Simulated scan of single mutants.
Amino acid sequence: MPTNALPQTAGSVRTILALDLGTATGWAIRGYDGLITSGTVSFRPGRYDGGGMRYLRFTNWLTELDRLSGPVEAIYFEEVRRHAGTDASHVYGGLMATLTAWAELRGIPYQGVPVGTIKLHATGKGNASKQAMIDAARARGFHPADDNEADAIAILLWALESKGGLG
């Protein structure tokens, strides 16, 4: 459990951010007004970027999202235990470290949610395909551009409907 423990229920929090961390990060946010917005943002390094630029851009993006849609009161992210490759693992670890440090500095509680938990909640299958996740989001009335956005939507819906795993 992180230092910043989550409130008793996700439903008691107004602004919740859900993230599928990666070079193409999927995001979904339920604002203080109850409106859910989602998308995908790229943190692919530019040709002349140093190794840490993607993490600085991620920090700036989080700060701007918090300023425009927040304040963010809780963060849920996909907790990945196995990666297809070393590079993906390094990017995920760097983004997760950046996210958790950013949240700690602001006193925002955060929680990782296992991939199987998210897939099971969204589709009824813990090993659902990327397309199944997109289809599940569409069945709920969302229009994800890709599987990253669909996963972020699924994480947010899990947090809201399971009260952050407590329901």
Rank of each mutant, 00 (worst) to 15 (best):
N60S: 10
L62G: 07
G46K: 07
T59Y: 11
W61L: 10
S42Q: 10
R47K: 13
L62M: 14
L65C: 14
Y48K: 12
G52K: 05
L56N: 10
R67P: 08
Y48N: 14
D66A: 10
L56A: 13
N60L: 12
D66E: 06
N60T: 07
W61A: 03
R47M: 12
A74H: 06
G50Y: 08
G50D: 10
T63C: 04
D66M: 06
N60W: 07
R47C: 07
G52Y: 06
N60M: 07
L65H: 01
L65Y: 00
F58A: 02
L68S: 14
F43C: 04
N60R: 15
Y55F: 15
G52C: 03
T63P: 02
G50A: 13
S69A: 08
I75K: 02
G70W: 04
D49Q: 10
W61P: 01
R54W: 02
R57E: 07
P71S: 01
F43I: 07
G50T: 12
G70K: 02
L68P: 12
T63D: 15
L68V: 15
I75V: 15
T63A: 13
R47E: 12
R44W: 13
E73C: 05
G50M: 01
M53D: 15
M53R: 12
P71G: 00
R57V: 00
R57G: 08
G51N: 05
Y48V: 03
L68N: 11
R57T: 05
R67L: 09
A74S: 14
P71A: 03
R44F: 10
F43N: 02
Y48D: 10
L56V: 11
S69Y: 04
E64I: 02
L68F: 04
S69P: 00
D49P: 03
Y55R: 06
T63Y: 05
E64D: 15
R54I: 06
R67H: 06
P45H: 13
A74I: 02
L68W: 10
L65I: 02
M53A: 13
R54E: 15
R67G: 08
S69T: 01
P45Y: 05
G52Q: 09
Y55I: 04
P45T: 09
F58I: 03
V72L: 09
V72T: 03
L68I: 13
L68E: 11
G52V: 02
G46R: 13
E64T: 09
F58Q: 00
Y48T: 10
E64P: 04
G51K: 09
L65G: 00
G50E: 02
L65N: 00
L65A: 15
I75L: 14
L68M: 13
S42G: 11
W61F: 15
E64S: 08
L56F: 14
T63R: 09
